[in-house]
Design a protein around this nucleic acid. Structure first.
Lengths: 234, 234
DNA sequence: CGACTACTTGAACAAAATCAAATGGGGTGG
DNA sequence: CCACCCCATTTGATTTTGTTCAAGTAGTCG
């Protein structure tokens, strides 16, 4: 368990938060009030941010690095629910109504997160409808992500899910593209709901659809073609 | 498309909403303000409440009956995300921040829902921190449900998911129990992420673990034994 | 009674997990 | 600098799981 280093919010961290998707449409003054009193926590790789079932007395905002949100079964199996980077909130809904953490969170690389006291946040919201609204918006986007995740799991095959993820990473509509896998393949595999072996085979299949792989760098020859494979109909 | 019958909120409907899990911990006056101006809509079976992608200018609360929340793929495939009964909110997060509906909702039997104007609700929240907090709590519970759903899909086999669902319906820790399936098996199958055929076979497997089936009535000989099958470890 | 729908069952097939064994870097200690 | 080890990844063979297609049963509603 390596040491964690804490300090108050520095200007460059403030900029990251200010610009994040979560707050980009919220008045600056409102954001400032929300993060007031927060502490920046620096964490090494594989550090636990919070554990399932624990009281969520803090909320977090990722400033830097990547974290995985996951559940573990009694048998030690793990299901990755999401992987979050800068600007994403963690344990927001839980912290705000005093419920226990619904999942565990760990860093997957050296990261910095802003820790906010849940009780203080609650007080601020009670007095600021605008802040409440922006947090509700955050919850809504979180919900949409989970819903999309479930839909994927229920309706797409493994290789299709992988293709879909790669296309999202590429973020391009047509032509060719270069993508770098943002983290270990094992983790991606779990996030996509498959074993590392299946992941590897799925990747092989994509080679037949214009994807070349070298290490963690992918080249998509024709984005439209790959999309046609990921979403056969429509 | 059969007619829908609308009328203002009657006292008996008020009681249902007042007592629902969503509002049971919220001050009565707050709840009253929230549902003020709402309209009760009576819907027949298989009526659409709202469709994916449409602007969510209304939020709903189920008063009576059951609705399914689902997504459809471009190819017509359907993925049931949840099935909700009395007291559950629909399109709450979406309505509150003006985003489009993230899923479709249809009744699966004659139902009544309370329709609330999203813009009006938004205004009320901005002025009432307590109301905001209770809605945030609702969003949180919704999140937890989806997270649990994803975990199930990723870590349990079909029969285990079915067993788990039955145990939840029974709501008993030990001994024996009687359960009535609350809706069509096809729908349950989809909700559990499998085909009707697989559902049927899964049910057969459970017979070997002390479950007898007759129509939509199940008898669990020993709850603990079934639980051991659903959650092999721990 | 007959048509319809929901459900069940069977057989063949497809997808993914599992078990087992290679491959291949990257980093460490010598 | 090099040999070696550790770990992630890949590949192969096999088994489990679940889907698909097809046929049959049963209850329901006209």
């Amino acid at each position: 368990m390596p040491t964690e280093f804490n300090r108050p919010l520095a200007p460059e961290d403030w900029e990251i938060i200010r610009r994040s998707a979560l707050f980009s449409r919220v008045p600056e003054e409102t954001v400032r009030r929300m993060v007031e009193g927060g502490v920046v926590v620096s964490l090494p790789k594989n550090a636990m941010v919070c554990g399932w079932g624990a009281p969520a007395d803090s909320c977090f905002i990722v400033i830097d690095g990547l974290v995985k949100v996951f559940r573990t079964g009694e048998d030690g199996s793990m299901a990755v629910l999401a992987i979050h980077g800068a600007g994403r909130a963690l344990m927001l809904a839980e912290g705000l109504n005093g419920s226990p953490c619904s999942a565990s969170v760990e860093t997957i690389g050296a990261s910095r997160v802003l820790r906010l006291d849940a009780a203080a946040l609650r007080r601020k919201i009670a007095g600021d409808g605008r802040l409440a609204m922006s947090l509700l918006a955050s919850a809504a986007s979180h919900l949409r992500m989970l819903v999309a995740h479930i839909e994927e799991l229920k309706t797409m095959t493994g290789p299709a899910r992988l293709a879909d993820m790669i296309l999202n990473l590429a973020g391009v509509r047509s032509g060719s593209a270069q993508v770098t896998l943002p983290y270990e393949k094992q983790l991606i595999a779990n996030r996509l709901g498959m074993t590392p072996e299946s992941f590897s085979r799925a990747m092989s299949q994509l080679k037949a659809h214009g994807v070349t792989v070298s290490r963690d760098r992918l080249t998509i020859r024709d984005v439209a073609r790959l999309r046609a494979f990921a979403t056969p109909d429509c």
